[in-house]
Design a binder for these strands. Structure first.
Lengths: 196, 196
DNA sequence: ACCGGAACTCTAGCACCGCTAGCCATTCTG
DNA sequence: CAGAATGGCTAGCGGTGCTAGAGTTCCGGT
């Protein structure tokens, strides 16, 4: 009885260790450095152990992505809470989003760009992501006007996503980053349109 | 004399064959299927030959990307030319952009998302990409207003890029695609703001 | 016409990847 | 205490990008 409980506890702990190791390795050296061998060495077990926890490397990355979603949601919520008026809230959440992507590029990639099979926009979307999306939507609500809020949010979000990914790959002039962010915010939350 | 010219001609032809093979393979089976071995088999030479033309696989992908840029520029130019008024031009070029990304996902990835070391937004940007960007910029010019045209274009482009990449990875509801496109166009080229 | 040298291509192999079969030790059960 | 079941390990498969070195072919000068 008790021993089995301990076993399960240890097992859960090891699973968390795998995710943590993958995340740290990815953040410090990029996803290319995250190999099953290195991961196994990091947690001080052999490779096959990984496969008793996850179906494959993709599943590990997906787990990291879900965890990262939680962080993103927290940061977005904080940015929204710190704002005093609707317009600043949009600017603040946009800045927070971009900052997250820049500060944790590996994590951001896992969540959004890597072809990890996290089915978004469907019923089994991880709650963490839904929360992050909801933060964006609530911040934008006063500016949606006649447009469907979800569609409106998706479009604004795409703008943010495009900005951060294109810039990170060197496709946009870095020095213009803040100007572009401000421009995007201005297009989706122009002054005097808030239906507060 | 003549034999050397023939050699160089054959060599250039083989280089084109490599790029074409990589492109076709990527478009039909995805970039994962593009391995140096398959590529070598496709052009009916051995692997090391590839490395006498390109520094590595990345360089081959970059070459495909540059070629793809040319196609994109052509399609954007056609869309712009077909439009009758500034606003429809923006809508048309946005649709053309999204259609290109959807019709040739592998090519689009090579150009924009794969971490291929094509330095954009710098002096050695391939001319093909500069042309594509210029098409976007010229289409948007009547709507830039007080904003710097280049920054304005970069931001709009980011919006398009975000829409197509997030949708392709299943992060956006596919059925709302056109609505989002229209919404984006409306934000950057609203009615009655053209300074034609 | 021939031979030495340069240019070129191929075979074979390196180190690594994700992943898995099958053995072995430990632990639990009757 | 014997046997079953669990769980981790070693070893290895087929694949990757890339390269060293051998072998062959072709060219230019005598």
């Amino acid at each position: 009885m008790s021993t089995q409980a301990r076993r399960e506890r240890e097992r859960a702990e090891r699973e968390r260790a795998i995710i943590a190791a993958a995340r740290e390795l990815a953040e410090s050296e990029g996803w290319d450095a995250v190999t099953t061998r290195r991961l196994a060495a990091e947690i001080e077990y052999s490779q096959p152990v990984l496969y008793s926890h996850f179906k494959g490397k993709d599943a590990i990355m997906a787990a990291v992505a879900v965890e990262g979603c939680g962080d993103l949601a927290v940061e977005l919520a904080a940015a929204r809470a710190a704002a005093t008026d609707p317009r600043h809230a949009v600017a603040g959440i946009a800045t927070a989003y971009a900052a997250f992507a820049e500060r944790r590029p590996a994590l951001y990639d896992a969540i959004f760009t890597l072809p990890v099979d996290l089915s978004f926009a469907s019923q089994d979307t991880p709650v963490e992501l839904a929360r992050a999306f909801a933060e964006l939507a609530e911040t934008l609500r006063p500016f949606a006007g006649d447009d469907d809020l979800e569609t409106f949010t998706e479009t604004f979000w795409s703008g943010l996503h495009g900005l951060v990914t294109l810039m990170r790959n060197g496709r946009l002039r870095r020095e213009e980053h803040e100007r572009r962010l401000a421009l995007l915010v201005d297009r989706f939350a122009p002054p005097g349109t808030s239906t507060s």
